[in-house]
Amino acid sequence: MTRKISVKRKLHSAVIKALMYISAALTLSCIVFIIVCVAVRGVGNISADLLLSSPSYISDKIGILPDILNTVYIIIATLIIVLPLGVGAAVYLTEYAKSKRIARIIEYTAQTLSGIPSVIFGLVGMLLFCDFFGMKTSLIAGALTLVIMNLPTVMQTTRESLKSVPQSYREGAFALGAGKWRVIRTVVLPCCVDGIVTGCILCVGRIIGESAALLFTAGFAHKVNGMIDGLTSPGATLTVALYVYAKEEGEFGIAYAIAAILIILTSLINLCASLITGRKKG
């Protein structure tokens, strides 16, 4: 006895299905539109001259070499500081923390930290590092602000992979008479290099894309500096440079070129991260 499905139910199903297809198509078309738009307007403007020179008012040209260098400096400085802190915190949580209470407090604060908008980080970074510690507007102040922002990311990814290290490895090493630190250093940490690298890559992605937190902490200067000078003086990263060129100076060609570079970089980073996590699963 087969009963037919009523017209109303069929219609309902069809409408929902149509809505699903429309939503998926809409999402995909947004992404395609953004990529195509940036590619069409930006890629043509990327040239060796743009990449390898600094802006000059005399010859009235714009180059983004200083911005690229500043981005690299700020990434290096941030990673150097955030890695030990984030990995250390993750090790503490998984290996040492005996009291559940403290662990929960740390977890909760890390979660809170990852929800705070970047403009607030920028403001507090400005008050704390630039004014209170007297660093002025400089790349290092920006990097320290980014350290606070990225701490939860490194902690989270490291923790995930620390959790996946089998307990028997640790027990084996303890049974051989190794101390806790030795076990962590020689057995546990080498097993979770994958997670730490993923954390780093995600951090780099976030640093490249960050703008609001850097506007007040790292400033807008476009000057080619060495690493040490660069960190103590103000400088614009690629995103800040894009913002300034588009909003303040109306140089849309340059802005789209930077946007194209940023999208290429972030998609490469995405690819790396998914390759690493894919390898781990496989």
Binding site: S211, L262, S267
Partner: peptide, 17 residues
């Protein structure tokens, strides 16, 4: 994959477009 890419695009690029 496309959604992953979208989440990685910096906010200034959205602003620019």
């Amino acid at each position: 994959g496309a959604v992953g890419l979208l989440s990685g695009i910096p906010s200034v690029v959205f602003g620019l477009i």
